[in-house]
Design a protein around this nucleic acid. Structure first.
Length: 624
RNA sequence: GGGGCGGUAGCUCAAUUGGUUAGAGUACCGGACUGUCGAUCCGGUGGUUGCGGGUUCGAGUCCCGUCCGCCUCGCCA
């Protein structure tokens, strides 16, 4: 075989006159009979090859072989670099030169490929094949230049991550993939044991407990780029199998680990995107929920939400009145109290047509809310603001107060959602994001010059009530510590003191980037008594806690240092750098919505003998 | 588990809204061509319209079921 001396991306004018060998795939061919051009591709780029009959008088067989070359054949060539005779191709980095082939070796002929690994063009003349087809033949799809760029960006992130944490004294330590089942939170993937019939491992949702135990082990600073598994339905930005940058530090409190994380974010964006990340803002959970209706606010646009319940109570509008009257008045975050929330949309009067705002009602219904009330502020005949459409007549008697309350001006639309606190908050929070998109207020970061808005969200509640069971569940996870100044109150709180427990704030923190959670973590509990109390509040008996987490509780009782940690969603980091909304784009071999790998056709049926080995019997009907 | 969208040559899409033999571009096959770079020109092959039922004189089109893919609600400690 003609082993390559250069890649297809590096041949330049400086190579003119020299003999080179190239290996790669036929990207395209232009056959003029006795003159054939081939664009040869590898992951570094394209180089034009020329097969010229006049130069092949001694080896005419090469012309015949070149004539038969087709897209995606794999070849090796040896030839001479020269300046292009037909003029430069400015689209290619190698566009000033070409290689006149003297020797051709066909390394592999291809069958007619189901699609060609071409990136879509701006003009729409080249379109991507179906994702389904591309995933089935992912080996072809990954040849696309943009997929190669994604894989290399991902690689770069791995390298910067390891370098940063290595420089800061972190040890990279692998934790088991065959984990203990701890069925809190996400549904787990189970793996049956062959040695002990009837028992199962679970694949880790995260290496949470092992990394805490590494702290007890004196490892002091740990990191790992690890695969995590959650057997829940996926979304455009969620896969059952995903990658985290996982870490944990000993002898720190919240401030120290947040500083370490910010340093990482700054390094990563600096090295991968050439972006200087300013000091990150902080927002407490309560403010996020009140002003943005979500725990991961997108601060690239303003569109703040305002609770106008007190004002709305003065309106003679039946819908608002009945909402405000219904619902138990519970004091904190998950109050069932009826509220009226409003959002002023600057410039909305023109852009948000009746059709669009009608759509908003359908939209919020999806989140359990009844609908969206609308009012427009238009210019009256005397030039002063006038309320128009929707609920204008109900607002008219309180117009001045209303305009002042929301700072509404001519040209604005104000949208209202009235419902129980939790429903209204969620609905208008989601609506806020939709309105921002509809209004064209969401700039794309990176290439389009939009901002990278990083934000810490802190001071989450420790616990929330499960809507169905009415039991306490940990908002983050049950190993999260109360904030230091809350510890005393937490330990002293009686279990049935719901008001106090609901008000306990944790030492957790999330990193939010442009409305997306990219990392989350917390100071952990390192005191066995605190951990036991959390388990108890979550409804676990001491026996159950012991059965599930005895190793943790024991570890905590044998000298556990104060520690804290974080996990970054690596796939989402890549998505941000690449600018895609599709997580499958940034994973080499992703799965579909029902968890199948279209290329390998996993999952698959296995022979009964294999099941018998692991003491499992399938209750599913046999399938051909 | 719920809601929505989609599946037509290898690929990307059409098919006058139920009406003749399901078309086009591209890919592929054959031919021509020495300066192309989306090469061009000429000719050709290629379809159980995802699958199974039903309605109808007649179904790619309507109905039911099913499979697959995507988006989404729930879910994701």
């Amino acid at each position: 075989m003609l082993i390559r001396t250069h890649t297809c991306g590096e041949v330049r004018e400086s190579h003119v006159g020299s003999t080179v060998r190239l290996n790669g795939w036929v990207n395209s061919y232009r056959d003029h009979g006795d003159l054939i051009f081939i664009d040869l591709r590898d992951r570094y780029g394209l180089t034009q090859l020329v097969f010229d009959k006049e130069e092949m008088t001694k080896t005419p067989a090469i012309m015949e072989a070149a004539d038969k070359l087709r897209n995606e054949d794999v070849i090796a060539v040896e030839g001479t670099v020269r300046v292009r005779i037909g003029g430069e191709n400015p689209k290619l980095a190698t566009g000033k030169v070409e290689v006149v082939v003297g020797t051709l070796e066909v390394l592999a002929k291809t069958d007619n490929p189901p699609f060609l690994p071409e990136d879509p063009t701006q003009d729409g003349k080249i379109k991507l094949a179906n994702e389904e087809l591309r995933l089935t033949h992912r080996y072809i799809d990954l040849r696309r230049p943009s997929m190669q760029r994604i894989l290399s960006t991902r690689h770069k992130i791995y390298q910067v991550t390891r370098k940063y944490f290595d420089e800061n004294g972190f040890l990279e330590i692998e934790t088991p993939i065959l984990y203990k089942s701890t069925p809190e939170g996400a549904r787990e993937f189970l793996v049956p044991s062959r040695h002990v019939s009837g028992t199962f491992y679970a694949l880790p949702q995260s290496p949470q407990l092992f990394k805490q135990i590494l702290m007890v082990s004196g490892c002091d600073r740990y990191m790992q780029i690890c695969r995590c598994f959650r057997d829940e339905d996926p979304r455009a930005d969620r896969q059952a199998e995903f990658t985290q940058i996982d870490l944990e530090m000993s002898f720190v409190r919240r401030e120290q680990i947040m500083t370490m994380m910010e340093g990482f974010v700054r390094r990563l964006w600096g090295e991968v995107a050439g972006v200087t990340v300013p000091p990150m803002q902080r927002m407490d959970y309560r403010t996020a929920m009140e002003d943005y209706g979500i725990d991961r606010p997108d601060t690239r646009y303003d569109l703040k939400i305002k609770d106008i319940s007190a004002f709305a109570a003065k309106m003679d509008f039946g819908v608002f009145k009945s909402v405000l009257e219904k619902g138990a008045d519970r004091p904190r975050f998950y109050s069932k109290k009826g509220v009226v929330k409003a959002m002023r949309v600057p410039g909305g009067a023109e852009k948000l047509t009746r059709k669009i705002t009608d759509g908003y009602t359908e939209f919020v219904k999806g989140f359990g809310a009844g609908g969206v009330a609308v009012v427009k502020v238009i210019k009256g005949e005397d030039g002063s603001p006038k309320l128009d459409t929707g609920i204008a007549k109900f607002l008219e008697p309180l117009k001045a107060e209303f305009l002042a309350l929301l700072g509404a001006q001519v040209g604005d639309t104000v949208l209202f959602v009235a419902d129980a606190y939790g429903v209204a908050t969620k609905a208008i929070g989601e609506l806020r994001q939709k309105v921002a998109r509809d209004m064209g207020m969401v700039p794309k970061p990176g290439a389009e010059g939009g901002p990278w808005n990083f934000l810490w969200v802190v001071d989450f509640p420790m616990f929330e009530k499960n809507k169905e069971t009415g039991k306490w569940v940990a908002m983050h996870h049950p190993f999260t510590s109360p904030r230091d100044d809350q510890m005393q109150a937490f330990l002293e709180a009686s279990e049935d003191d719901e008001v106090t427990i609901e008000g306990i704030v944790s030492a957790g923190y999330d990193v939010v980037l442009n409305g997306q959670e990219i990392a989350g973590g917390s100071v952990r509990i390192h005191d066995r008594a605190v951990q036991s109390k959390v388990f108890k509040l979550l409804g676990m008996t001491p026996e159950q806690a012991k059965e599930k987490f005895s190793f943790l509780l024991e570890a905590l009782s044998f000298g556990a240092p104060p520690h804290a940690g974080v996990a970054f969603g690596l796939d989402r980091l890549v998505m941000n750098f690449i600018g895609t909304d599709n997580i499958r784009d940034v994973i080499a071999f992703p799965k579909t919505q029902i968890g199948s790998d279209l290329m390998t056709r996993a999952p698959s049926y296995v022979p009964d003998v294999q099941l018998k080995d692991v003491h499992v019997q399938s209750i599913a009907p046999p399938k051909a």
